[in-house]
Amino acid sequence: MYEFLTGAGVWIAFVIFAGGLFVRVASLYGVSRQKDAVFYNHTNAFEAVKSIFYWLIPWGSIAARTQPVFSSMVYLFHVSLIIVPLFLSAHNVLLQEAFGVGLWSIPDSVADIMTALMLVAGVFLFIRRLVRPEVRILTEIRDYVLLVLTMLPFLTGLLASLNIGPYKTMVILHVLSGEILLILIPFTKLGHMILFFFTRAFIGFEMGGRRGARTW
């Protein structure tokens, strides 16, 4: 079990993750060339960059400023979500062993703190989904499930790192939940990690490029 998960399992997960995202973007690009060809006449790199940039910086958008607590939580959630797995020494050690290369690593104590903050933010987002009527009405079971699945590798990773609970089981659960998450990304709304850039660029062309209106 452990061997499979940390061996072939990792490979399978990453291939599906990267391949799935690639196929999804490629097929959407194909459809857009066919059905939305007319919009390619209005592409405008500067407006696309602006439209993306203002939504990447903290409180860069008017919507983020109208809900500052929520947007801070989303920011915290995503920053940890991206930084910790990429720059975690434990992950990089595994990469080093497998490929002989690894990324630069952040100290483990920092990783622990960021992971804990991500979990706090995640719980906040979960509660917000339950209590705010305009969010609850949109939320389906799958949205709660995806949020929990996104948090699971962080929870199990943190418990393993702090040596809480049976270590071996924790690591197995961690790897398993990490792989499940990676596999789901291309096929769910989590695909936004790539598609975000495309949809923002599009609205940048339409509203910013053609009309000069702000989209942030």
Binding site: D36, R129, D143, T188, L195
Partner: peptide
């Protein structure tokens, strides 16, 4: 089109 497919899918709710 691709826009509609993408929008309907990635709305973060």
């Amino acid at each position: 089109g691709a826009r509609i497919k993408t929008w309907l899918n990635i709305c973060a709710k």
